[in-house]
Design a protein around this nucleic acid. Structure first.
Length: 435
DNA sequence: GCGATCAGCT
DNA sequence: CACAGCTGATCGC
């Protein structure tokens, strides 16, 4: 990017200004508290949450911009070396708290970078955002659409989040004597937890750092770190597995719920072999499949009981295929690129939506995601995962263990990790766990 | 000792 | 596969 002007969710050298769509880790790789490459623009909510993730970040470089209005930035044109004006508007992506799309106007034309987004047909928030976007465009053509193509395949079919949330409430209500754990990430799915809390009139347990995040998000009273106050706990997704559930069930009857657009892949208890692997070759089949082969599918509207303790519910913060299609039909961009471009799973949106773009592009670009050959559009760097070759040479199996662990409700932490958490302000010693 | 980065894993 | 992200190891300072 020697001629770089702007970067979105990408943190290499060479751009004059940087933009962050939201605070999930796969979009902040390369960012650190020692950042000094240039101003970083984001939504006001992302800016509020930002210091929690990057405690010593130089706040003079953090530039929150309000959504739904144009902002002008004066930059130096990479081509003419003279001043050039960049206009940007932030639009609600309804993905996780603070998540936005960026609409750019400048000498390069008009670009729309969606970041991760979910715009459901029945969502008032999405309708408002859509109106903002259309009004902002004022009939202008989007030259390049950088699109959240996470679920850009017709096999990805899942319901609106309010439907999936009610499915989860129903599962919990049908297990009145059970504890419930729900797998979540460091940010996102707060609306789901809020819905559960209101529908069942329960508080929700979260781990200490997550409670801090909830307070930053102005959620008070609903969430607690006291396990005696509720039977419903939201736990880090990475701590959520069959072994965790088996262990919890040796103490109390407990079910686990995985809200995800992706189906859950079971691992054997030995952790080595994927169960039912031969049947999980297509995502469509995976959603169809029930692990309980002896008694037939235990499945309702996308909800699956993968395991006697575990439910997978299709609650997704990314748009499903149909929603992506509707978005592309709405924008009708001249050109399009997927922002999720790991080499093994990249699906070029043009493959499915080329007919909705203004240019009649052949689908030959299916695996051409890494290079932009249209000279004028090279100003925008976009996120792409770097891929090393198979560097497994000399890679000996490292011995695990030998390190003391502290256990927080199935969350296994090394001392190093506990220290990291402590530095970030978590008071692990005050976490009243019941195991 | 610390931060940045990477492989590995879920 | 991989939504997003943790863990532990290594390396350079």
């Amino acid at each position: 990017m020697e001629k770089g002007l702007i970067s979105v969710d990408r943190w290499a050298d060479g751009s004059q200004v940087y933009f962050l769509t939201h605070l999930h880790s796969d979009h902040t790789q390369g960012l650190s508290s020692t950042w000094a490459k240039g101003p970083l623009y984001c939504s006001p909510l992302t800016a509020k949450l930002f210091p929690f993730k990057f405690p010593n970040f130089g706040l003079s470089l953090l530039r929150p911009l309000h959504t739904n209005s144009w902002h002008s930035l004066s930059l130096i044109s990479p081509s003419s070396a003279s001043k050039t004006l960049l206009q940007v508007m932030l639009i609600d992506a309804h993905h996780c708290p603070g998540a936005v799309m960026f609409l750019f106007r400048g000498e390069f034309g008009c670009l729309l970078y969606t970041g991760d987004f979910r715009w459901e047909a029945n969502s008032e928030r999405a309708k408002r955002a859509k109106t903002m976007l259309i009004d902002a465009l004022q009939g202008d053509v989007v030259d390049t659409l950088y699109l959240d193509n996470t679920y850009c395949n017709p096999s990805y079919v899942f319901p609106h989040r309010d439907i999936a949330a009610q499915q989860i409430v129903d599962i919990i209500a049908s297990h009145p004597e059970h504890d419930v754990i729900i797998g979540i990430d460091t940010l996102g799915k707060e609306d789901l937890l809020l819905y559960i809390s209101r529908a069942l009139n329960v508080k929700i347990w979260v781990w200490p750092e997550r409670l801090q995040t909830m307070h930053l998000l102005d959620f008070h009273d609903i969430f607690t770190t006291n396990t005696t106050l509720t039977r419903v706990r939201a736990v880090p997704r990475y701590s959520f597995n069959i072994n965790t559930l088996e262990g919890l069930n040796s103490m109390r009857p407990t079910i686990g719920i995985m809200p995800s657009g992706l189906p859950w892949v079971l691992k054997s208890l030995e952790g080595d072999e994927t169960l039912f692997g031969s049947l999980l070759t297509s995502r469509y089949n995976k959603r169809k499949w029930s692990a309980n082969s002896g008694t037939g599918p235990d499945k309702l509207n996308g909800v699956e009981r993968f395991h006697k303790y575990i439910y997978s519910v299709p609650y997704s913060d990314h748009s499903c295929y149909k929603e992506i299609q509707e978005f592309v039909e709405l924008i009708q961009p001249t050109n399009m690129k997927g922002i999720m471009s790991s080499s093994s799973c990249y699906v070029d949106p043009l493959y499915y939506f080329g007919r909705f773009s203004r240019a009649d592009q052949p689908s030959q670009r299916l695996h051409d995601q890494h290079e932009s050959k249209e000279g004028g559009k090279r100003d925008l760097a976009f996120r792409g995962k770097s891929y090393l070759g198979s560097g497994d040479v000399l890679e000996a199996k490292r011995k695990r263990g030998g390190i003391a662990k502290v256990n927080i409700l199935g969350v296994r932490l090394s001392r190093v990790s506990a220290l990291r958490r402590f530095r970030r302000g978590a008071k692990i010693g005050e976490c009243d766990c019941h195991d």
